[in-house]
Amino acid sequence: MTQRQISHDEPLPACRRGHAARHIHDARRHDAGGGHLVECACSQTRKHAELDGALAEWKRMHQIRTPRPRPPANVVQLGLRLGIGARR
């Protein structure tokens, strides 16, 4: 069998309909039809040489945004702006 499901410590993001996503790896060479793909009950990505490519396509397909990391609570960020251009 050339295909196997790969488990991750953190689950992959679900699709828009809420189906659980799963990572499938086809062990054949990429040019022979192998690669990584992400699928659920209603959709799947193309096969990619790396999981990162398949996961990026999955997020685009289902409009999944990755939240920006928040700074720690003990860090103060100042709203500074760069003044580009000459003053009049």
Rank of each mutant, 00 (worst) to 15 (best):
I84N: 04
P71Q: 08
R16E: 10
R88G: 12
A73T: 12
R81T: 00
A32L: 03
G85C: 06
A73F: 06
L80C: 04
H48P: 03
H8V: 14
R88L: 07
L82D: 00
A41Q: 11
Q77V: 09
Q3D: 03
G53Q: 10
R81S: 01
P71H: 14
D31W: 02
I24R: 12
Q5N: 01
G33C: 02
A14S: 14
E50D: 12
H25F: 08
R70F: 03
G33Y: 00
I64S: 10
I6S: 05
I6M: 11
Q63V: 12
D52R: 15
C40N: 07
I84E: 09
D9R: 14
A56K: 14
A49P: 02
R46L: 14
M61P: 02
P67D: 08
L51F: 15
E39L: 05
T2M: 07
A73H: 08
R70M: 11
R65Y: 06
R4G: 04
R46G: 15
H36P: 13
A86I: 13
R46Q: 15
W58D: 06
H19Q: 06
L82N: 00
A41C: 03
A32W: 00
H62Y: 05
K47P: 02
P67S: 08
A73S: 13
T45V: 06
H25T: 00
E39A: 09
A86M: 10
P11G: 10
E10H: 14
A21E: 02
A86S: 12
R22H: 11
A86H: 15
H23V: 05
